[in-house]
C-alpha cells in the first residue's frame, strides 16, 4: 500500500536518512524503532509530505507522491510528537475545526466528532478547553484530530511520550482497536520496545539514518539465536571478577547493570561452573543466576550497541 524507495534526506551535508526502504501492507501494523537522532521523525515527515526528500521516493499504491502529495494527504493521518492542537479551544472545537479543514461532510461532521471522542474516551470532557487537560488527555485528542477524516494509514510519532501509564494503556488500546476493528494501517514509532512488541506485526529498526534490521518479532529474535543471555547477581562489585569473566572463552559481551552483570555467551555453552569458580577465588558470592529469553530490546542492543533510551 505505502512504501519508501531509497528514501534519503541530507541536512547541511549530514545524512539524516540514508536510502531507507519501508513497506506497509494494507491493514498492517508496523513499528519503527530507533534511538534519538536515528532519523525516524525525518522519515515520517517525508512520508507524510511535510518535507521533500533529497532523493528516493514515497509511493502510494505504486504511485509516486513526491510531485503531487495531495493524494497521500487524503489517506494519511499523522499524530505528531507535539500536541498539535489549539490549547485555547475545547476538545470539541478542535475536532470540529480539523474535521472541517479535512472536508468531512457537513452532515456527518457531528457524528464523526462524537465517534472520535468516544474512541479516545473523552466524550464527557469535550466542552473543556484543551489547555485544562492532562498530558495524556491531550495526546488522546491529538490522535482523534488525526483520525477525523478516516485515514487509511495512521502514522504515530511517539504518541506516548511523557504520559501516565493509564493514558498510555488507553492510547495503545485505541491504536489496536483502529488497526484490528477498522483496518487502519499503522506506522508506529516509539522508544518503548514493549509498545512496539504489543502493537506491531512487523518492526523496522533504524540507527544513524539507516534501517539496520526488519521483520516480524520472531524473525528479529532469530538474530539472537546464536547467543544466550545470562544475568547474575553478586554479593559485591568486583572489578577483578569482571576482568576474569571477560576473558572466559565463550563470553561475547559483558555489561555491568545496577543489580549485577549481564553476560552474552555462545548458544548452548554452560559457563556456570567457571563463574562459580572465579567468584570463589575473588571472595564474591553469586546470589542469583538466570538465563534470559531474548527480547526485541536485546535485538536492538545487539544491532546498535546501545539501548533505545540512549
Amino acid at each position: 500500500m505505502l512504501e519508501t524507495v531509497k528514501l534519503s534526506k541530507v541536512f547541511k551535508e549530514k545524512k539524516a536518512v540514508d536510502e531507507i526502504n519501508l513497506y506497509l501492507g494494507k491493514g498492517e501494523s508496523v513499528g519503527l524503532l530507533g534511538p534519538n537522532g536515528a532519523g525516524k521523525s525525518t522519515t515520517i515527515s517525508m512520508i507524510s509530505s511535510l518535507i521533500k526528500p533529497t532523493s528516493g521516493d514515497v509511493k502510494l499504491e505504486g504511485k509516486s507522491t513526491i510531485k503531487d502529495p495531495s493524494e497521500i494527504r487524503k489517506v494519511l493521518g499523522v499524530v505528531p510528537q507535539e500536541i498539535a492542537l489549539y490549547e485555547e479551544l475545547s476538545a470539541y472545537e478542535n475536532l470540529k475545526f480539523f474535521g472541517k479543514i479535512y472536508q468531512v461532510e457537513k452532515g456527518k461532521l457531528e457524528e464523526r466528532i462524537q465517534e472520535m471522542l468516544e474512541l479516545v474516551g473523552l466524550k464527557d470532557r469535550q466542552k473543556h478547553l484543551v489547555k485544562t487537560f492532562s498530558g495524556g488527555m491531550k495526546r488522546r485528542i491529538n490522535i482523534a484530530a488525526a483520525m477525523m477524516h478516516r485515514p487509511k494509514v495512521l502514522i504515530l510519532d511517539e504518541p506516548t511520550v511523557g504520559i501516565d501509564p493509564q493514558s498510555r494503556n488507553h492510547i495503545l488500546q485505541t491504536v489496536r482497536k483502529l488497526n484490528e476493528e477498522q483496518g487502519t494501517t499503522i506506522l508506529y514509532t516509539s522508544h518503548y520496545m514493549e509498545e512496539v512488541e504489543h502493537l506491531c506485526d512487523r518492526v523496522y529498526i533504524m540507527d544513524h539514518g539507516k534501517v539496520v534490521a526488519s521483520g516480524t518479532k520472531s524473525e528479529l529474535l532469530s538474530i539472537l539465536s546464536s547467543e544466550d543471555r545470562i544475568q547474575i547477581h553478586v554479593s559485591r562489585k568486583s572489578p577483578e571478577l569482571i576482568g576474569k569473566i571477560q576473558h572466559m572463552e565463550h563470553v561475547r559481551r559483558l555489561d555491568e547493570t545496577n543489580d549485577g552483570i549481564h553476560i552474552i555467551v555462545k548458544k548452548g555453552r554452560n559457563i556456570l561452573s567457571e563463574l562459580v569458580h572465579a567468584a570463589e577465588k575473588e571472595g564474591v558470592q553469586i546470589i542469583n543466576y538466570q538465563v534470559e529469553i531474548p527480547s526485541l530490546e536485546d535485538v536492538f542492543l545487539h544491532l546498535t550497541g546501545k539501548t533505545l533510551r540512549d
Partner: peptide, 13 residues
C-alpha cells in the same frame, strides 16, 4: 512551533 500548522498543511487546505 506547536506543529498545528503542519496539521493544516496535511489537510490539503
Amino acid at each position: 512551533r506547536e506543529r498545528v500548522f503542519n496539521r493544516i498543511i496535511l489537510s490539503n487546505s
